[in-house]
Structure formats: C-alpha cells, structure tokens
Design a protein around this nucleic acid. Structure first.
Lengths: 333, 333
DNA sequence: TTGCGAAATGACAACGTTGTCATTTCGTTA
DNA sequence: TAACGAAATGACAACGTTGTCATTTCGCAA
C-alpha cells in the first residue's frame, strides 16, 4: 500500500522533526545538530527518499541543466559533446539533449521553442551546416544561447574552430617549403567545414599572389579522394595537395602511388582532422587537427558565464594545430 | 521593471480570462471557445510566455525525460546515442545526460544516485567495461533502468549486441570455407567487447573439436595489429585470422603483405565493426558489423515500455551482420 | 539557579502549474 | 419568453520543495 513517492514530509514525520529541518539537512547540513542530522539521514535511508527535482527547481527558479541541440551527430561532434559533458560535470550542470532526426526539417527557432519547454538554464546549438533561419533567428531573451558554428551570428554568442585559419596554416606550410601552388580537394558541397577550409586555402594563395587552381570536388570518403588523386597525378605542376579531410587525403595518396608517383618525393599532401593514424599503421600524413573537445568546453563555459546576462554576445575562435609527419617535402632542401 | 518570468497568471490577466482557461488553451484547446483562445494566444505572444517546466512536472508527476549515463563516449557509442535520441524524439521524450569524466571513478550506484536527482522518468546506462558494483547494483525501485552491456544483470533489464554470436558467425564463415583453424587478435584486455568476441571465437572452434590457438594481444589500434601480423606470418598453419576490430585487421593485413603473403590467397582475414571502407579506398576486408543504432533504439523502447513497471526485467540481444568483401578465400574451391 | 545571546528548529507562505468541482453562459426547444 | 441541458469558464486546492521569520532550546556566565 505504498504511496507512490516519498516526500520530505514523510521523512520529517519518520524522523520526528519538521519539514524544514529535513530541507536543512540536505542544503545546509552544518546548521543542524549532529544527532538530529543522523536521525534524518536514517529516516531518508529507511524510506528511500529522493529529492523531487521539479519541486526543487520550481522553488529555486533554476534547473542546473544546460540544453544541447544536435543538428547532426557524428565524428568530431563526439569529442565536442565529450568536452561539453565534462565541462558541465565540472561546474555541476547536467545536460538536456534534443536531436534533429534524419529527414526532419528543424529550424533554429523551432529548436529553441522545443528546448525552452525543457528544464534548461541556457542552451548550446551545434550547427554544422547552413540553416534557413540562421540570420533571422533570435534567441529567447531570458535563456542564454550559444551556437557552435563557423558563421558569425548577429545576436547570439558563437564558438567555432578556426577552420579557415587551419587551412591557411597548411597552405603556408607548403608555400614556406618552396611549393609554388597548392591543389585542393573539397568535402561535400553543403558542408560549412568544407566551405571554410576552401576559403582559407583560397585566401592563403591569393595573399601570396597565386591564382588558386580549380578545386576538386570530393564527398569526404576515400573513394572520392582516390578519384581526385587520379586527376591530380596527370597535372605536372601539382606538387602539393590539401585535402579537406584525412580519408580523402589517403585516397589521394593511394591514387598517386598507383600512378607511380611518390608521396612526398613527387607530391606532398596534407589532410584535416588527424585521424588516419588510427587506421593506417605508420601513417605519414601531416594533418590539421582541430581541438573539438576544447570547442565543447568553451561553449559550455560561455553559456554558464552568460547565465546572468543572456543577451551578452561573444565570438570565440579555437585555433587548429598542424600535426607534422612526413608527407610534405621541403623543396628548398 | 520587468518581472523575471511571465506566468500563466500574467497571461490570464492580460487576456481577461481565468488562470485555468489559459491552462486549457495549452492542454485541451478544443474545450475553449475560438474567440477566447485567440485572445489568450495573443496575450501569450505579446508577453512572451513560456510554460514553466518545473511547475508542470511537479503537478503531473513526470518529466518526459529519459536519463542517459555515459561511462565512455566514443566510436560506436555515437550511433547508439543517435538511436536513443531518435527513438526518444519519436516518442516525445527528451534526454538528460551525464557522463563519467576521464579519470573519475563512478560506480553504477553513484551514477544512479546522481541521475535520480535529475528530471528523469527512467534511465539508460551505457556500460562498455566491467565495473566494480555491477553484480550488487540495485536500481531505484521507482525508476525503470536499462543497462546497455554485454553482461547479464540479476535485476535490471539489459540490451546488448550479440558480440559472441558475431564472433561465432565469423569463425563458422571461415570453417565452412575449408579453413582448419582460426587465429584471434584481441582488443584491450579490460574491454568487455574484446572478451565477448574472444569467447565466441573460442566457442565456435571448440564446438567443432578444434583446439583454439593462443590469442594475440592487441590494443585496438593498427600498430598492434601490425605486430600481431608479423607473428602470424611465421605460422605455417595460419590461414585465417579474426581480429577484434577493423583497424587491427588492417594492421594484420599490412604486416602479412610486408612479409610477402597475400590476402586472401595465403591468409584470410575478418575484422569487426565494418569501418575500414571509410578510410581505405576499395577495401577488401570482410567484417562483422553491429547495429549500434538499433541497440540504442531498443534500449529506449525498453525503458519507455517499462515506465509503468520499473521492476520488470528483460534481456535483449541485437544480432550482428557479416559484411562480405573479398578478404576470405574459399579453400574448398 | 537565573538570565542571556546564539544556535537549532518550526510554522507558514510561495513558486507556477493542473485537477476537481462549482458556476456561468450559450443554444435549443417547448 | 421560459426552461433546460450542454458547453464554457472560474475558484480553489494541491504537487514537494525552499525562504522568511518566529519560536524554542542550548551553553555559558553571573
């Protein structure tokens, strides 16, 4: 004949104290005499008391949860979520998550509306592709909102890895070693990452007065890199290739080899994401790696910092790192 | 001079109706006359009303959230979370997440304690390694708990992919094609997946009266597979190798080739997880693939199904799939 | 013992919503 | 027009906590 749940009142009665004393045992134990505290703890134990989250947050006016909206869940996102989750744990926050379903059309406004019905004090949007209402979106005024994306937003705080800078860094690495030009193999057209990486590549070349060659269109997978590699192998002026990710870079390298060319002696290659070593023993591929975890950490910290001032706005860029291996030849040597 | 939040009462006053009518507009719109409804909607719009989650759940006695505890976040887990998230969305649930931090020691009991302070109607534990209190753990009686793990649990529902069956399937695939024995390269020792895969491999051989050779210890990465491959290349009776994941399988294959052996002509190889094709163009590796997404979906459905009867218990096994490519030679041919 | 300030505890309201039940309004028929 | 049943609306309590403020108990000095 159990009541459904055990309340603080039940505990209070069992321990022979007042409701408020039970509350104090939980929230400010030092203000309760030890003997009383023990009695209350015993009663809680005996009855299997668990504090009611809803009542507590109703009274406190906050939840201790940060909302995370995933528009896309994969690859680097994992490390990012890992960063968010760890930073949240460290600061005593839990995460509330919703995800766009495959095929579903979800705008920022729609996501914000759903999220704001849930127990959250602030929210993080993880956006990897362009979305219709990006520029027009306005976050709820009382809910701090941070967007992880490559684009700048007019009203919300954003956190992004510096993809453009990473691509520029890779190009300069080539150019500083005597290469006269750099070819580019892109990822899927609609991907923001791919677009930014391409933009950085273009900018780096143009800064040096070099006319960027036509980029080769890939789709992130090794096969598309292989196809691009076959094309590049026939270009006599191609000494340096920047591929928008490691898988495609690997495809490029294998095609070059199949065409009798050596990496790095004939052609140098740089990839992105530094993940080839996980799959290929003794991988030689130099790669630009982004610190996705750091991205998540920064986003969470930004939300928490802004809880009291939801309308504040900031833009954070997290720089990439060039992981050097031996796939780039120094032509000056 | 704004009040912090807008309540239903504020809306009611603005619309010139009672509190309860506003509530009805939200929960049972058909029971409110259209003209009234419009007035209320207008007031909500004007004031920027958002329903208070805490008050609502306090009254309703449920949250509409399922808790997810991640002891480890990586690789296949992503697809699993994806499955959980999609299934949750479909059934109108949000997810509340907490994650074990790197280095932190978290028991099941501890995780359950933390989770049960959060807004959740039930919870899913994602456990990939053995944990101290696994056998002694008892879930809160009023909170449906499902554990995703390879082991059977005395009181909680579990969902698992059939790793043992997958390994058995791969071995039988070899044996049915005339191979007389199968060598095994394991993953990290403490990994449950690795242990189960090894168990299935052993069982399959023993069923056929074959003495399993000493397994080779790996660590999931390609380099350890390569090392194992070098050893195996010197064993004349080695015609078939089962590696506990694709990365190590790739390492094995590269070592065999470096030793002048051909795959599959001299040695056949099968891996696990079917992910090599993402990195290697024209990959030939046959691999056992688990449907991680399905795992997540099943876990969530199990929780939701058990919300009313938290102490019910079930065990779900999700079978793997053998993705055939050309890394296995049919010796009977 | 008495008195006193500090420490410990308690009574009660309030957070914003929904359920119960009473009341008002509406449309219809006699 | 009156009377009626159904539809629409409202008043009030309740969910389980925490904050405010009042009351009781304690330890110690006189």
């Amino acid at each position: 004949m159990d009541k459904k749940t055990v309340s603080m009142n039940d505990v209070a009665i069992a321990a022979g104290v007042s409701l408020k004393t039970v509350s104090r045992v939980i929230n400010e134990p030092d203000s309760v005499r030890e003997s009383t505290r023990d009695r209350v703890h015993a009663a809680m134990e005996a009855l299997g008391f668990r504090a009611n989250f809803a009542a507590r947050s109703l009274k406190l006016g906050r939840y201790g949860c940060i909302g995370v909206v995933l528009f896309h869940l994969s690859g680097g996102n994992v490390d990012m979520i890992d960063g968010i989750a760890d930073a949240a744990a460290e600061r005593g926050f839990a995460l509330t998550m919703i995800k766009k379903r495959a095929g579903e059309k979800m705008t920022l406004a729609e996501a914000a509306r759903r999220m704001s019905q849930l127990p959250v004090d602030g929210m993080i949007f993880n956006l990897r592709q362009m979305i219709d209402d990006f520029d027009t979106f306005e976050a709820p005024k009382d809910l701090k909102t941070v967007i992880i994306t490559s684009m700048e937003h007019p009203t919300c705080s954003t956190v992004s890895d510096d993809q453009e800078g990473g691509a520029r860094m890779a190009c300069e690495y080539f150019l500083n070693r005597g290469h006269k030009n750099v070819y580019f193999v892109s990822g899927k057209k609609e991907s923001l990452s791919s677009q930014c990486r391409m933009k950085g590549w273009r900018a780096a070349l143009e800064t040096r007065g070099i006319e960027p060659p036509e980029p080769l269109q890939g789709d992130w997978n090794a096969d598309s890199g292989y196809a691009a590699g076959l094309v590049l192998a026939d270009k006599p002026d191609c000494t340096a290739v920047l591929a928008a990710n490691d898988c495609m870079a690997n495809g490029v390298m294998m095609a070059l080899r199949d065409k009798g060319l050596s990496v790095p002696d004939d052609v140098s290659v740089i990839g992105f994401d530094d993940e080839l070593y996980k799959t290929i023993p003794n991988s030689i591929l130099t790669s630009v790696k982004f610190r996705h975890r750091e991205l998540g950490v920064r986003a969470l910290n930004e939300v928490v910092a802004g809880l009291e001032a939801p309308s504040s706005r900031s833009r954070t860029l997290v720089s990439g790192v060039l992981v050097e291996r031996s796939s780039v030849k120094d032509l000056r040597a």
